[in-house]
Design a protein around this nucleic acid. Structure first.
Lengths: 261, 261
DNA sequence: AAACTAAATTATGAATTCATAATGCTGTCA
DNA sequence: TGACAGCATTATGAATTCATAATTTAGTTT
């Protein structure tokens, strides 16, 4: 239940490079560092008031997560999520969610369950009032709480790894009223299955709940990619400095690619 | 089929920090950097003939993988696999293996399958001749090839992440003749299911094959942990410099722990 | 004017330096 | 003799410096 409590807690003391890892991640998910864009080392150092050493350490970490790609002697570029990657992540997340649901049903304590139920009720009331932001943060907290109820750190880490790369803030902003209501119903079902300790159904519900979420992300992502492609096809498009274009596919393919695990 | 081919290929040019990540990983799996041991920065720099900068970059990456823990201002320590972590990894690896099997059955081409079959036959002949090392490398290659046949990079990455931390060379060295024969039989069954494109059975076989592997690792690990505990309980044990002891549990618990995602 | 070449500039990778925190050591005092 | 305080040493985190690779710019040639 760590995460539900964590919200009101003091911010933990972080090392400089650790802090930078988070900041950079945030810049990327918010879109301030756009997709194929080169990471402006010097500029970021000035902005954060740090030297290159910790920034570069942070970039190495992000590269090992696949968030950026390091091109030897040519800097780092943001490695945006592709529709393909999302499609591939789909079954993997599903398998992990399903597993989490089953384990959680076996392991969850009444206390943990009560806290999740309470969070759920609060979340529903936010939904009724149309309060998007608190709804999302509780939504997230509930999913995390279920995950943590498994008490399986390896599973938690594996899931978060994927989840972090896929669910970013900007995809959450636009959601239809219809889909929103459906999501709330799904959450009701999730709670019910948990309370019945019905692992099999919970696994199934979580999987389809996830599927809906990912479909939303995917359609949005594909729209973005098409828009991107249109811009790139315009021959007269003047490259502006603050909205740098992706390098054309041919050039990208020719460039030596850093190995990505 | 990249991996089966890779074995005979030239070593790729790596960046310094990337090379160091691999070297350190190797030192840890081989046991030269033992479990709770502090990572000797200066010494390793001399040994590899590099400055601290790339070494520290490598440590940051390893920390983000959970291989080492960074204690602020107090250096990095090796974060050995615990029996608990292994127990937790069990169902996660199982879920991923099962998924990989199912996808592979749907996706694998005849060409890929033929290559795996060939590798399998070679592997069996190595087994007959009792040649351990080539057996293991082909074994590994076959599992990788199945994984790659899914053509799902996200799944591949997730699986490797876990696998790398769990399967290390030293656990492979001692295997009973009986267990070895059983493993070969399991591999026969895996191939057969693949050739029948029978995803469900393949998933099941892979899962139990994995379970056997992990059990072996676990029993070995637990033996080690108990030996460790015995040493620590000896009050007169002279701490030798080249085989440093783990810090006692109480001290470890009191030490500020770097956040481990 | 377009294409190629060479110098100048800039960015990158890595070593070195520097400030500070942690650890070890020595001497003092109970 | 043993515990503690204060100094010396060492290790760590981060900035700076330096060598080299990449890129841009200017100049030259056709």
């Amino acid at each position: 239940m760590t995460l539900l409590a964590e919200a009101s807690q003091t911010i933990v003391r972080r090392s400089l490079h650790g802090e930078l890892v988070e900041r950079l991640r945030a810049l990327i998910t918010v879109g301030e560092l756009a997709n194929g864009q080169k990471v402006p080392e010097r500029e970021l150092c000035q902005r954060f008031g740090v030297s290159r050493t910790p920034l570069r350490e942070a970039l190495k970490v992000l590269a090992s997560e696949g968030v950026v790609t390091l091109r030897p002697n040519r800097g780092a570029v943001v490695n945006g999520l592709t529709a393909q990657e999302l499609t591939q992540a789909f079954p993997v997340m599903g398998a992990l969610e399903a597993l989490a649901g089953e384990i959680a049903c076996r392991m969850i304590t009444d206390g943990e369950l009560a806290k999740i139920r309470a969070a759920h009720e609060t979340m529903v009331s936010h939904w009724r009032r149309g309060e998007l932001q608190p709804y999302f943060s509780l939504n997230r907290a509930i999913h995390e709480a279920i995950l943590e109820a498994t008490h399986n750190d390896v599973l938690i880490a594996a899931y978060r790894n994927l989840s972090r790369r896929i669910m970013s803030a900007r995809y959450m902003a636009n959601k239809s009223a219809k889909r929103w209501a459906q999501a709330v119903r799904e959450h009701e079902a999730i709670l019910a299955a948990l309370e019945r300790r019905d692992g099999k159904s919970l696994a199934k519900i979580l999987k389809s709940h996830l599927a809906n979420k990912l479909e939303a992300v995917k359609s949005r992502l594909e729209a973005e990619e098409q828009a991107q492609a249109r811009i790139e096809r315009l021959p007269s498009a003047a490259p502006s400095s603050d909205a740098p274009r992706r390098r054309p596919a041919a050039a990208r393919a020719a460039a030596p690619r850093a190995a990505r695990r």
